[in-house]
Every structure is written in structure tokens, then in C-alpha cells.
Design a protein around this nucleic acid. Structure first.
Length: 153
DNA sequence: GCCAACGTTGGC
DNA sequence: GCCAACGTTGGC
């Protein structure tokens, strides 16, 4: 079992949206970065635990917890000409992009980026690395434990 | 809106 | 394979 941080723009999908979604789950479609795709395709498994992060918004930070509930499969939006995620180079025979599905676990207080940066224990966190833009990053078990038991207690 | 940092594309 | 140009991310 692994731990992850997944960024979502709350305008697109917030933790509240996930809590209100049918069966409280959602397909994590729209990822168009190979590294992030590879994490989903090669590393993520059902049961993996997720820090749900709000990005590109007034208060960026961790907003809740989620869990991977479906392994990666081809992202439908790559085939949809009307989608902003459409990819002309992807075909059904050779899909380029995949998505997992996640389900709601809990909403937490908003644990802001500034507060995360203040934690010595999290100095090595991938999310906080200089210039990091990856929308999906692995989280060390120690980091997960610190965040969930110390900061989000 | 700015801009640093990174990723992708495509000519050579 | 190199690398300039361009596009995107995402905090501020």
C-alpha cells in the first residue's frame, strides 16, 4: 500500500464535490503529464491512500483524504473531440492517457501550503520541492503519518 | 497578471 | 541528440 498526494483545482473537483459525487467517487481524468500518468499506471493500486490537495486557488493546501478505488484504465476524455483534454494522437488501440478512480474518505481542515512548508519533518516532501509542478506525487509513509496524526489530528 | 520553473515540440 | 521556442503549472 502506498501514499500519494493528488492535486485538484477546487473549481474542477473539490473535496466537497467528491463527498457529493455519486458513490462518493470520481475518475481522476485529465492528467496529461507522463510522470504523473506513469504513477497511476505503474504504481497506484486499489487501497492506496491519498492526500487531496487544492491547487490554483485562494487557499492552496491539503483539504481531505481519499483512497484509490479503481486501478488505471484509459482516460475517456482523450478520445472526446469536445473535451479540453482531447488528444488527437491517442487512439482506442493505443491510448496515451489513463486515470484511476478515487473515493472520498474524509474532509479535513485546510492544511495550507505555508503551514506545510513550516514543518521540518516535511522538508523532503516532493510536493514542496523547488519548482515542483507534478499533479501526482508519492508521499513517504513517515510524511503521511506526520500529516495525518500530528497536523490533522 | 506576473513569472519561475519545468515539460513538450520540432527543426536541424 | 541538441536545444530554442513555446506551452503549462501554480503560487503569489
Amino acid at each position: 500500500m502506498r501514499y500519494w498526494l493528488m492535486k485538484s483545482e477546487p473549481d474542477e473537483l473539490s473535496i466537497d464535490d467528491l463527498a457529493r459525487a455519486p458513490r462518493r467517487r470520481a475518475a481522476w481524468f485529465g492528467v496529461r503529464n507522463y510522470q504523473a500518468r506513469n504513477f497511476m499506471r505503474d504504481r497506484m493500486q486499489i487501497g492506496d491512500q491519498v492526500l487531496f490537495y487544492h491547487s490554483s486557488c485562494a487557499e492552496p493546501g491539503i483539504a481531505g483524504l481519499a483512497e484509490v478505488c479503481a486501478n488505471a484504465y484509459p482516460d475517456e476524455t482523450q478520445f472526446d473531440r469536445t473535451s479540453k483534454y482531447y488528444d488527437a494522437k491517442a487512439t482506442r488501440d493505443k491510448p496515451r492517457w489513463v486515470n484511476v478512480e478515487v473515493k472520498f474518505v474524509k474532509k479535513t481542515r485546510l492544511l495550507g501550503l505555508t503551514e506545510l512548508r513550516q514543518q521540518t519533518a516535511l522538508a523532503g516532501m516532493r510536493l514542496l520541492a523547488r519548482g515542483n509542478r507534478l499533479s501526482i506525487t508519492p508521499v513517504d509513509p513517515d510524511e503521511w503519518k506526520f500529516i495525518t496524526t500530528k497536523l490533522l489530528k
